[in-house]
Design a protein around this nucleic acid. Structure first.
Length: 646
RNA sequence: GCCAGCAUAGCUCAGUUGGCCAGAGCAGCUGAUUUGUAAUCAGCCGGUCGGGGGUUCGAAUCCCUCUGCUGGCUCCA
């Protein structure tokens, strides 16, 4: 007998060699039917694997993320089996589970697979699922593994096996399909009850642009049909939040082929919203000791040769601008930092002045690959809420902390609570990608990790994600359909001060090198507004919404009074407009509701007589009559409450 | 840049196996109505069916090509 400790702390005595599934059956038959995998001593394994000694055991079902992951991983195998039966000449790359479902990278040879093939494949998958095929684990030697895929003619698997150690290679066999796989898997394919193939996409083999492109098929499966329906409904809902859809509906921004790809045009309402965000940040920054600076959109190409940006990105950027002077070239600025370095250099600095914080809403231009452009989140011309802090090495931590304060303040004010904080460090295997001395890199990386630790930030660390000049801390937020976008960023940089030969005179009367911190709490105004739109589904907080109130006169008889109300509200700092169309009140209300305007002010005979407005709140309805001044005060109080979050 | 799909009026979409002057709703304009908490009625305007080339007696529909958009891949200072 062995002792099995369950998550609730209870200990169960079972016969040695029992599987997790056996133990589940002892708890209840019904429960056992939902067990997809098991976690033994913290490691996810097959539920069918015998347990040979005392262990902690967690039975994983669809309610556990790891249970879902196991089902989806097995689903990738099942899809591969279905595809191999339908298209026998295919070769397989890799087929992992992902956040929502799974994919398999497949070489279809000459066959052009498209979404038209999906129904056929889905049908086959369900057919095979109903066979309740067992997933059988097999340990194989490297030689046997290579021999198997050699006779099968699958060069991708061969390449994967080459990188593996003999003795650690396992195959999984289910039905007619055998795959190189570490596992674990669900007990049998019968758990898969609903399947939806989502999309086909090209994907380079091993993520390498220079290698062959395979066809990636994304899919998702569920243990119940109802769950699939719910998932698809969720996706439909998310689509309505898409900032490209709302941006059009709410008249915030547009694009024009005549202007160019990835070059957004801000409409009056969008510009209004963006200006309010900028004003808010300017206020916060002023209080934090930032000084505004302004620099031009272009700079001499030599400036970017000094900074290193030209060598790194010049070839894949907008080409330089030539002038009538032979040999003179200008570069559209891709970054504001070189300009700010020159501002720093315009006068000598004492340690007493530091830190110096230059802030600028600087518009930059980057030639992003055409396939990468996406609404406002990935564009070719955008405005960074940029600032560069020049400080002594001793001041890094304090400054870094005060930047995090600003970012947290903004994210709180806008109710962004699902934020991933990522620390991006160098990739130790490719140090040639980075500029600057090892010593400086280590200092900078240490500063960031220490601050994160001291503040108890919930961070993830990614190696190889650093900028080429320094490590960074990024604040990442999800959009409506779960895609992740980097918003705020803080980067420590020892390199530009070196390249620009920046200096300050220390207390010892010697010259010292300052450290630079690049930081942008919003990241880019374009991307931030995009994510904001999706975050609040177009229902902007009162302090940001372009139109706070719309005045709806009952009939044309009351237009004069409506105008009077508008004047008063405007003078009292309320952003209002009038709907004086010759329409019925119900209609005007409906339109205002759809435009997501927070307050509707209905005015007719009653209101005109008493110098009042009837207040209807968006999504809530009639809230009663109040005087114009009282309404303005209410709005202003609400705005101040929202903006003064500490 | 690569793979796949899509492109019909300002917007959302119909348009059968190629076949009468290409349709609807919304928006816009004009008129009637003078409206009280989510759509008043009527009329009008609006499209070289993304651009170019081809097949055909005949193309929105089939083929080629370019451009743009969408979803991925790669990239993201």
């Amino acid at each position: 007998m062995i002792n099995i400790t369950l998550p609730d702390g209870s200990v169960k005595q079972v016969t040695k060699g029992n599987t997790a599934l056996d133990i589940a059956r002892q708890i209840s038959e019904g429960f056992a039917r939902n067990v997809l995998a098991a976690k033994v001593n913290g490691k996810v394994v097959n539920a069918t694997q015998p347990i040979e000694q005392d262990a902690e055991l967690q039975l994983l079902t669809w309610n556990d993320q790891e249970g879902k992951a196991t089902l989806w991983h097995s689903s990738a195998h099942l899809m591969a089996e279905a595809i191999e039966l339908l298209y026998p000449s295919v070769k397989f790359g890799i087929g992992p589970n992902i956040e929502n479902g799974f994919y398999y990278d497949i070489d279809f040879g000459d066959y052009d697979i498209s979404e038209k093939d999906f129904p056929k494949i889905e049908k086959k998958i369900l057919e095979l699922a109903r066979e309740k095929q067992q997933f059988v684990r097999k340990e194989v030697s490297k030689a046997d593994a290579l021999a198997y895929f050699k006779q099968k003619g699958d060069e991708y698997k061969l390449e994967l096996i080459e990188d593996l150690e003999d003795g650690e290679i396992t195959f999984y066999e289910s039905g007619h399909f055998t795959d190189l796989c570490r596992g674990p898997h669900i007990p049998n394919t019968g758990f898969i009850k609903a399947v939806k193939l989502m999309k086909v996409a090209g994907a380079y083999w091993r993520g390498d642009e220079s290698r062959k492109q395979l066809t990636r098929i994304y899919g998702i499966t569920f243990p119940k049909n109802k769950e699939l329906t719910e998932y698809l409904e969720l996706l439909e809902e998310a689509k309505k939040r898409d900032h490209r859809v709302l941006g059009k509906e709410l008249e915030l921004f547009t694009f024009s082929q005549n202007v160019g790809l990835g070059l957004p045009l801000w409409l009056p309402k969008g510009a209004q919203l963006r200006e309010l965000l900028e004003q808010y940040l300017k206020k916060v920054q002023k209080a934090a000791g930032y000084q505004p600076v302004i620099t031009p959109h272009i700079g001499n190409v030599n400036l970017y040769k000094t900074s290193g940006h030209y060598q790194k990105y010049g070839e894949e950027s907008f080409k330089t601008i030539k002038t009538p002077v032979e040999g003179e070239e200008f570069f559209l600025k891709p970054m504001n930092c070189p300009h700010h370095c020159e501002i720093y250099k315009s006068s000598p600095h004492s340690y007493k002045e530091l830190p110096i914080r230059y802030a600028e809403f600087g518009t930059v231009y980057r030639y992003e690959q055409s396939g990468e452009l996406h609404g406002l989140t990935r564009v070719r011309g955008f405005t960074q809420d940029d600032a560069h802090i020049f400080c002594t090495p001793d001041q890094i931590k304090t400054e870094f902390n005060s930047v995090i304060d600003i970012i947290e303040k903004i994210f709180t004010a806008l109710d962004f609570n699902d934020v991933i904080i990522q620390i991006s460090l160098r990739d130790a295997d490719h140090l040639e990608k980075y500029i600057g001395s090892d010593e400086n890199w280590e200092k900078a990386e240490k500063a960031i990790t220490e601050v994160a630790k001291e503040r108890h930030l919930n961070t993830i660390t990614k190696y190889g994600e650093a900028a080429f000049y320094g490590p960074k801390m990024d604040f990442i937020v999800r959009d409506a359909i779960g895609r992740k976008w980097q918003l705020g960023t803080i980067q420590v940089d020892y390199n530009l001060p070196e390249r620009f030969d920046l200096a300050y005179v220390g207390a010892d009367n010697e010259k010292h090198r300052p450290v630079m911190i690049h930081r942008a709490p919003f990241g880019s105004m374009e991307r931030f507004v995009a994510v904001l739109i999706e975050h609040c589904a177009g229902n902007f907080p009162l302090w940001l919404t372009p139109t706070q109130a719309i005045i709806l006169p009952i009939s044309e008889k009351y237009t004069a009074y409506a105008k009077k109300v508008l004047n008063l509200l405007t003078n009292l700092d309320v952003r209002a407009e009038i709907d004086d169309r010759n329409e019925k009140t119900g209609r005007k209300i409906r339109d205002a509701e759809m435009k997501k305007i927070p307050y509707m002010l209905i005015v007719g005979e009653k209101e005109e007589d008493s110098e009042a407005v009837s207040v209807r709140k968006h999504k809530e309805g009639d809230t009663g009559v109040m005087s114009i001044e009282a309404f303005a005060e209410k709005v202003n109080n609400e705005v101040n409450d929202l903006m003064n979050i500490n």
